[in-house]
Write a protein that binds this DNA or RNA. Sequence first.
DNA 1: ATCTAAACGAGACGGTACGTCCTGTCTTTCG
DNA 2: CGAAAGACAGGACGTACCGTCTCGTTTAGAT
Lengths: 210, 210, 210, 210
Amino acid sequence: MAVQKPTQPAPGKPAPDSTRRSEKSRRAIYDAALALVVEVGYPKTTIEGIAARAGVGKQTIYRWWSSKADVLMEAFLDLALREAGPAPYTFPDTGDLAADVKGVLRATVDQMNDPRFDVPSRALAAEGVVNEQLGRELVAKLMQPSLDLYIDRLRAAQDAGQVRPEIDPRIALELFISPLAQRWLQHTGPISHEYTDALVDYALHGLAPR
Amino acid sequence: MAVQKPTQPAPGKPAPDSTRRSEKSRRAIYDAALALVVEVGYPKTTIEGIAARAGVGKQTIYRWWSSKADVLMEAFLDLALREAGPAPYTFPDTGDLAADVKGVLRATVDQMNDPRFDVPSRALAAEGVVNEQLGRELVAKLMQPSLDLYIDRLRAAQDAGQVRPEIDPRIALELFISPLAQRWLQHTGPISHEYTDALVDYALHGLAPR
Amino acid sequence: MAVQKPTQPAPGKPAPDSTRRSEKSRRAIYDAALALVVEVGYPKTTIEGIAARAGVGKQTIYRWWSSKADVLMEAFLDLALREAGPAPYTFPDTGDLAADVKGVLRATVDQMNDPRFDVPSRALAAEGVVNEQLGRELVAKLMQPSLDLYIDRLRAAQDAGQVRPEIDPRIALELFISPLAQRWLQHTGPISHEYTDALVDYALHGLAPR
Amino acid sequence: MAVQKPTQPAPGKPAPDSTRRSEKSRRAIYDAALALVVEVGYPKTTIEGIAARAGVGKQTIYRWWSSKADVLMEAFLDLALREAGPAPYTFPDTGDLAADVKGVLRATVDQMNDPRFDVPSRALAAEGVVNEQLGRELVAKLMQPSLDLYIDRLRAAQDAGQVRPEIDPRIALELFISPLAQRWLQHTGPISHEYTDALVDYALHGLAPR
DNA sequence: ATCTAAACGAGACGGTACGTCCTGTCTTTCG
DNA sequence: CGAAAGACAGGACGTACCGTCTCGTTTAGAT
């Protein structure tokens, strides 16, 4: 009888009972949301449209999500988890840091060029830029796991003497990732394996002559 | 900088005569747009709201701009030009590349922490992520001029033997700028002078031991 | 008076077992329905609201009634029976037709000015105007018993030579009742004892001079 | 520039400028409303449905009317005025009161049996029963003009000595009209010329023997 | 006294309509 | 003719209820 949801103080709403939630509807909503974003773009994707395409009442969306961005984030997260498979997060460690990072970045490049990932994640990124709360959620749920792997790999490289010990891995990884992300988001240049390879070389050895 | 598209022969529309345009209305629209974006955020800023606040008919906006983002981009561009003053774009060259870049990045950091710049430029960046055409315009009009200065300075450093000659300055500058931009846009870490100083050091000397 | 429709062979539904019906729920639903109609008016009275106020599941209402109007009609009928007491329907016969009818009409006037009766019966009357089936039920269950008493009394008056024998009592009673009902429903004039007294005099003696 | 509507204190809304109102839309809305009410009934007639059928935005309805009932009342009033023609309201006076009233009531009966009048006016009557404000408007705009003609005719009959001088015409006319209206609204009996003829005879000569 | 089938409370579901807001177009009036 | 004003068709918003459909949980009759 109790209206559970002890984690949140429940400001006004009675909080729905998640044990009764329809799995079928959730899946249909995820699929509809992702399909619509790819087909018509994020701004023209509407909650009404998602509901109609999923064969679902609007209230079923509003009951479980707070906004269009929220729906899309979960849908995309779900997609990412399904794609990644049961053993999701690993980072190669062949002993050759440059080669390992280049490999991972090439995979990232390939994903950026796949519209199924590109369109929804651009939309989410854009929303996160303007909506700080969503942005933090995005980072925490979608990006942080991958970033942690970078950090681990960089630490291993430090232990192996391939990276200077005073380097902060948290900042170092941005030298690889941020330029790529920026190019991708802002269309400021081609996204290619050559580009990310160069990025790794520049970052590892610096711009100044030795 | 021209607002209307003189390049296009106007397939259906009569194309307004820009010589008769009301300067007062344009200013009022710029001011209203920027104020609203700062006050209520980009998504809640509407064309109707801008028109009402500017004391202007909606048609006056639709006559000269094609979208909310277009209005805001011009308004922000205008703001940037007015702030920069009559001698806008320069990049210091004391001979010490690291110091020069650190100085410029510290100024950028300060601007990012000023809400008058932060809010509108976030909004524009977000819009550009999702709307490629606008994104390209943004880059060309707002960012390219500054980026070119970085490139010039890096080239000078190459001439002075402070940067390896085989380095592509177009990619090199991303090592400074993208991590900062990314942190700023995605709230993934503090934006401080210490951070940008570290960025410059890492980028110039690389992560690997010498 | 039976609630469920034993006459209908239940085309698709299993037909609930009325012997197991919860009397407590029925009472709670009646009370909630009447209270809500008086408090917020008929249009804003909803089945969900009745269920919530009665502490009852919606299905319990849908199981036993077919519509909001149906619920209210039964609730009101129940109220009327409880108010009338165990010996409900009588009509005075003192031998003075005018006085007898005036007395009954005065009681009707008093009831029309009691919100507990006024509000629900207005709502039902309105619904019956638009929904013919409900209208007929209303007339049959709520009004016909009283009307029959009028007819009996008029017949007795005819036998006593106080009413012309060729008069149809079914039409005659409308001369008393309909003007009052009309005024009440349409707010076309004050509802008072003086008014109904005048009505009886006019109807009995006619408008034309003798 | 003034936001007129001096009759109402304009609590919050800016009050639309009626001089700019689209006559075409108004007509389309009237037609759609009347057609829908006749076709699907009042409860299933929705504002969205009217707007869709009229090829009009919902806001155009909400701008000028406050409710579905309000739309329908104006639409019906407009219909009544158009049907009545340019010389609308007259009441025959042949010197024979009974014949004159019978004639008018027969015409009323015929109208009650025409679905184009029956359905919308039932709906309005029902709404007016429950919504007092609307009910008063209905009476004032739709019924009062006709009632006044009855009163005038009855006064003339009093002057001619055909009706007792102490009779209040305002009450007297209800003896003719209310029974008919009540039968019609409540389906309590057939609506026919014979019935109204009898009504007139009963009312004029009374029920009691002379 | 136990079993069992139903009625029950609760409320999620697919829907419809609500009344509001904004879009982008069009029209009227003024300067 | 540009501009202020704002009505218009259209359509998405988020909310409220509709009537249906499960879920456990009483509860009352038959065992």
